[in-house]
Nucleic acid binder design. Structure first.
Length: 511
DNA sequence: CGGGTTTGACCAGCGC
DNA sequence: GCGCTGGTCAAACCCG
């Protein structure tokens, strides 16, 4: 096809991955502060992942206090202590969560294995896993339970989607164990969520995961049948969306999946048409994506993914899927359970590595944006010379049984926002070279190298993600990564320290 | 001929 | 209730 517009042809793409500079885990509101100004004292923020303690890095030292060195030193020390404590707490929490999570997953898997034949039909979708990712649960749940549980539903069909969401029953079951109480609403305010949302809402997680791409563990139940277009209405957060922003001249990002375009529309506020794609790798695959160029920067291609694949994904797509699913899960976990506020204000911001979440009340569904643009046109350079040792904190496989999912938020690329219509203030980041435990620099290099080496964006991303994940596992302790937090709206992570564009677009952009 | 794209129409949600 | 907008459908068309 000659169509100028789209095609999943693989054009040479440049991927610019820029590592984040700093991360503020709990940067709830304070994050902004840090960046903006010298405020040695904000408590709330803790950089767990980073080992904030790194003295040398000079985390917040940025506080340009006029004070003599001694004072500054004291301040820094006190802050470091505080951070360390928080860090410990967080870690312990994380550990617990991870344990419980893994247990639940194990149980779920067992249950699924017992109950499910390898593959169910699309309808109930028992599709099992996608590439490595687990989605198997669905099948089991899919059967009856999922349906039963569907909350929303007014129409059977609509439910389909939800089913998928609810499907996670298995998860839910698990969650129940935890006893979450996730009454979504109630929890909103509670910082509990902040705590990695662990118990907080597994529900949310479940849901989210289900929605996310190849959701690792979550079942994708989305029925192959047509989804009611309006299903969104039923669910306040019908799905989490994961968008990727990347610089690319190519009309499409090849992400390892096959897509079929089913529509195109001019979106308000953006001269560039928005293209709608549906995954065609498997019949009935509910995954859809929207591709649109950023209005503000046409070089940025925004790709938004929605739904979970109900089929195995090729390796190239796996990493991305995991990442996105994890991101979605994270987002949902926060959002669904409680209000967006929780997410932004609490949950996300509290997460290690989290940069910042922007919520806009108006958004129908939560969206996490993975920003690969990082302002740097040349990704290649990244691997060469990371200005400062930047680390990717991302544990992408958040959904995976691994406990790390929570870390996702910390992904440098992640930006969560629920449609941010609000402009994000220019991000100010502080760059902090952090001596990470994990060899941040190496990670960066690895990632960037992978990306650079691979002409295929998707593959590159996948490779990068994979490498990251692997690295993370190795020492995820939270090595520092730099993230920028924005107080108000969004998170932006930019390695360079260049502010990211606030976009209303949720997307997945690639270069 | 099959598969994918194009494009106008249709539908639903939302705000006024 | 009306109009706007986003999202989807489906016939027509194109290409290999």
């Amino acid at each position: 096809m000659d169509n100028p517009h789209q095609h999943q042809q693989q054009h040479p793409r440049e991927l610019t991955l820029l590592p984040v500079k700093e991360v503020d885990f709990f940067a709830s509101s304070s994050a902004a502060d840090q960046q903006d100004g010298p405020q040695p004292h904000h408590h709330p923020s803790v950089n767990t992942g980073l080992n904030l303690t790194c003295t040398t890095t000079g985390i917040s030292t940025s506080t340009g206090s006029p004070n003599p060195e001694s004072d500054e030193k004291k301040m820094v020390e006190s802050e470091l202590r505080r951070l360390q404590e928080e860090n410990r707490k967080l870690r312990s929490m994380v550990d617990q969560i991870a344990k419980s999570y893994s247990q639940l997953q194990a149980q779920l898997l067992l249950a699924l294995q017992k109950q499910n034949p390898p593959i169910h039909h699309q309808n109930n979708i028992g599709v099992k896993s996608n590439n490595g990712m687990i989605s198997g649960e669905k099948g089991a749940e899919g059967d009856g339970r999922a349906k039963v549980e569907m909350k929303n539903n007014n129409d059977d069909e609509k439910k389909e989607r939800e089913v998928s969401a609810s499907n996670n029953n298995a998860d839910e079951v698990m969650s129940k164990k935890h006893d979450d109480d996730d009454n979504d609403e109630e929890e909103e305010d509670h910082l509990t969520k902040l705590h990695l949302g662990k118990q907080v809402d597994e529900d949310a997680l479940e849901r989210s995961s289900s929605q996310s791409w190849g959701s690792c563990k979550t079942p994708n139940l989305e029925e192959p049948n047509k989804l009611p277009p309006s299903s969104s209405a039923d669910l306040p957060f019908r799905k989490a969306r994961v968008s990727v922003r990347a610089r690319s001249e190519a009309p499409l990002i090849s992400d390892g999946c096959q897509w079929r375009k089913y529509g195109q529309k001019m979106a308000k506020g953006n001269p560039s048409p928005r293209a709608y794609y549906r995954c065609t790798m498997a019949a009935g695959c509910p995954v859809r994506k929207q591709v649109q160029r950023c209005a503000e920067d046409t070089t940025v291609l925004i790709t938004t993914y929605e739904g979970n694949h109900n089929h195995p994904l090729p390796p190239a797509a796996t990493a991305m899927a995991n990442t996105t699913s994890a991101a979605a899960a994270m987002l949902l976990s926060g959002s669904t359970s409680s209000s967006k506020e929780a997410l932004t204000g609490g949950y996300l911001s509290s997460m290690p590595y989290t940069s910042m979440a922007t919520l806009s009340a108006s958004a129908p569904f939560p969206t996490i944006t993975l920003d690969l643009t990082h302002n740097h046109p040349n990704a290649l350079q990244l691997h060469r010379v990371p200005p400062s040792p930047v680390t990717f904190p991302l544990p992408l496989h958040a959904l995976a049984p691994t406990p790390h999912h929570h870390q996702l938020l910390g992904h440098p690329f992640l930006i969560s926002h629920h449609h941010q219509h609000k402009l994000m203030p220019p991000l100010v980041h502080r760059q902090q070279p952090q001596p990470s435990n994990n060899n941040p620099s190496s990670m960066v290099e690895t990632v960037s190298a992978a990306i650079a080496s691979d002409p295929n964006f998707t593959a590159a991303v996948a490779a990068a993600l994979s490498s990251i994940i692997g690295a993370q596992r190795g020492g995820d302790g939270g090595s520092g990564s730099a993230a920028m937090i924005h107080p108000n709206n969004g998170i932006s992570v930019s390695p360079n320290g260049s502010p990211q564009l606030p976009q209303s677009c949720t997307t997945y952009s690639t270069n």
